[in-house]
Structures are given as structure tokens and as C-alpha cells.
Nucleic acid binder design. Structure first.
Lengths: 220, 220
DNA sequence: AAATATTTTTAGATTAGTCTAAAAATTATA
DNA sequence: TATAATTTTTAGACTAATCTAAAAATATTT
């Protein structure tokens, strides 16, 4: 159907367009995301444009077409379902699942994905708290907010993280934070922006500003 | 490590060399197995030979080297473990598992395969009864014999099949034959070689000579 | 608005894997 | 053993995806 590489470009464009608002995505940003050169990106954008998977105008950036978006969402669906499988069934930590899912997401079989979804009990979120698109590409809108925007003293529940780097996920583990845990943010340090958090057993920890911005919660 | 394509060539050579005795494998046989042209095979054999994965001499055929055999066995291991997963956990029929496992067998992660093996309870055979190599590539020698070589009246247990074509597997299903079932071969038809078989509930069926040769059993 | 810096695109080359058509080697046949 | 048939290899071309270096367009600064 679509090549491994085409799927990766579509996924990268999807990711960048949702991360950085919904405008056009730049050639350089895609090159960085995929760890390749701008010239290669230009070539591929022409090809994807030929196939009507993206709207592309020279020097003006690129946007996914309707069909391109659909394919991207299917890849995301597969990626996140496999992450759930790896985490829940094979006991991989959330910092380990991403790399393997990058490969598994390209396996071609709709039936396989439907069966996997059944087998996992139709999960709504992956191990990082990101929503899993359904068969038609519909995405549960998530109303999760970054912990650094919650008012001090407001009890909330950890629902996800918005950075998937190994270093960040390892700190999160070390702090004893897991999805579903209850926490209460305290005062922000005026000078450096670091945040004190109260955990369920009354334990208190301090995390940096940047980390607080990548911990997503739901207030209750 | 090794490309998708290289792995497929090694697997094909392994398969052909075990099927057709242990001599050299011919260029044409590989081309047919992989549905490609002899010229392409020659090119790849040179490349694999460069990397010492095969012993190859022009016009003389090819044999896996020690390291080539090891890699082939790892691919076979992955293929068969994924087949067990698809069959046992996701309820795919044995005629459906092969195609998807052809893709899954190329996922690169030793840890993944070890965990999958644990999760499945270290199965010794795939859904077709073929033995699964262990981590080091060791293969349980199977002493399964084709049903048409069993003496009439000898009770035996179905342990596998040696043809994986959809058409054959569908007939096997239709006859009610499954791995583990007990059966007693009756007399062979002198003229056409067809064989009568008694099933557990005393039911009797007749299958052709060719099918009987591809049903593997263990006498008890 | 002109000069400078940045981003993006083009041009041309490279690599892995494949192909066709023709040549060379091997095997089978008469 | 010469001839024919088959198998295998070479030669040269093609595609997808990538790269470097240079040119063109756009954005920023003075």
C-alpha cells in the first residue's frame, strides 16, 4: 500500500502539525523530526503531493490532505496499540515501548490490528496517556492539562506525559509517578520555576519547571 | 543489522537446504521460492558471500555458513513464535498466521522475542507442528513421520503438517483434523493410494495420498 | 529598501534491490 | 563427443530513497 518511508513522513507531519498548532509544517522541521536532510524532505513532499496525501506548495510548507491525515492516524493507532501490548502484556517500561512500536506500526494487516484491539480490551490511551484513534481515525479529545498550570492545592490525577524521551521518562519513574496516581501541586519557586508536589502517602517531591510542563493531569 | 531482504534470502536458503537434503541450493530454486529472478539471486549471493553468510561458488550453488545458518534460525524462531501468538492469543486460523508472521519476523529486538517467548510459555512447536529453535538456534529434532508411512491399525497422534498452503490447511480443517488428535490409519487403496483414517469418535474419513504424506504423526 | 542570514529547492551522484536481454557455463541428449 | 537444452552469470538500466553542494527564494536586520 504505502511504503514504510511514506508512512513515516505522514506520521511526522501529523505529529508536528498537532504539536505546533494547525498551520503549515516546514521542511526543516520535518527533516529534524526524521533525522534526515531538507533536500530529501523536499523530494518526498513532491511525491506525497503527487499522490494527494499532502497539500504542498514550494517554499510555503506542507499540510496533510484528508486522506493523508487518515493514513497518519492509522499509523498512530497501530503505534499506540502496540505500545499498550508491549507494556501490559510483555512488561516493557514506558521508556522502552516507543522504539519497538516504531517498527511494529508498519505491519500491514487491518485484521491484525482489530484483533489486537479486541485482545487488549479496546484501550483508550497508550502507556504515556496519549489517546488511541479508533478504526475510523477518530481521536478522543483529551482535556488533560500540564501540571504547571494547575493552581496550588488543587488535587488532580496524573493522566499522561507530553515528552517521551528516555531521560524524562526515567526521572518520572524515579519520582514514583505513574498514570492514575493522585497528586497535589504546591507552590512554585519564584526564582527558578520549580514545583513542589504532594504524593498520595503525603510524601513531597520537587521537580523542575520543564518537567512540570510535561506532566499532564486531570483535575477532579 | 541485516536487511529485511538479506534475512529473507537466508531464510529461503535454509528452508530449501533442509527440505531437499543438505547439499548446495541452486540459484533457480531460490528465485522460485522468493518469487524473483535468477539474476537478482546471483547479485544477492555475491553480497551474502562478501559478508561470509554463505559459501558460494559460481555455477556451483550455495550453502549457508555457520553465521548465516544462525541468522536464518533466528528468523525462523521469530516467525514461529509470532505464529503461536497470532494463533493462541489473537485466534487466527493456521492458514492465516503465515502471511502476517512473514512481516513480524523482521522486527529487530532480541528482548522482544525473549519476552514474547516467556509470555507464550516457551512453546516447542508452532501451530503447524514445526519446531521452534531456541535462543541459541538449537532445534528440537522432531521424530514426526508422515501418516502414509505408518502401518495400518497403528494408533498415533497428529503432531503437525509439512505443507502450509492455504488449500491444504483448509482441507485439514474440514476433515476435523487438529494437532493433538488421535487417529488410526486403515488400509491404503491399492489403485490410487488414498487412505482411510479412523477418528476418535469412530468416524472414518478418506484422504488422498498426497495429503497423507503431509500429515505428520507420532506413534504411541 | 538594501544587505545579510536563513530556509528551501534544484542538480547531480549514490546505494540497495530489482529487472531484461544476452553471454557463458553446465548438463542432458542424441 | 558433438549438439541441444538448461541454468547461471554478466552487462546495463531502472526505482526508491538518500546525500552534498550550489542556486533560488524568503525572512530578518540594519
Amino acid at each position: 500500500m504505502y511504503s514504510f518511508t511514506e508512512e513515516n513522513y505522514l506520521k511526522a507531519i501529523y505529529k508536528l502539525s498537532t504539536e505546533l498548532g494547525h498551520g503549515e509544517t516546514s521542511t526543516n522541521a520535518i527533516a529534524e523530526e526524521l533525522d534526515t536532510r531538507a533536500a530529501s524532505v523536499t523530494d518526498m513532499l513532491k511525491k506525497l503531493s503527487e499522490k494527494d496525501l499532502v497539500h504542498y506548495e514550494k517554499y510555503k510548507g506542507v499540510k496533510l490532505s484528508h486522506s493523508g491525515q487518515l493514513i497518519a492516524l492509522q499509523v498512530v493507532r497501530k503505534h499506540r496499540l502496540w505500545e499498550v501490548f508491549l507494556h501490559e502484556k510483555l512488561d516493557f517500561g514506558w521508556e522502552e515501548v516507543h522504539e519497538i512500536a516504531e517498527q511494529l506500526e508498519h505491519i500491514q494487516s487491518d485484521l491484525l490490528i482489530d484483533r489486537l484491539d479486541d485482545y487488549l480490551g479496546h484501550p483508550k490511551h497508550d502507556p504515556h496517556g496519549d489517546p488511541i484513534p479508533d478504526r475510523s481515525g477518530k481521536l478522543a479529545e483529551n482535556d488533560f492539562i500540564p501540571l504547571n498550570r494547575v493552581e496550588a492545592g488543587t488535587s488532580c490525577i496524573l493522566t499522561g506525559v507530553s515528552d517521551h524521551s528516555t531521560s524524562f521518562l526515567k526521572s518520572v519513574e524515579k519520582w514514583g509517578l505513574r498514570i492514575g496516581i493522585r497528586l497535589i501541586p504546591g507552590d512554585k519557586n519564584e526564582f527558578d520555576g520549580s514545583l513542589e508536589i504532594e504524593l498520595p502517602e503525603g510524601e513531597k517531591i520537587v521537580i523542575g519547571q520543564k518537567s512540570a510542563a510535561h506532566i499532564l493531569v486531570k483535575t477532579t
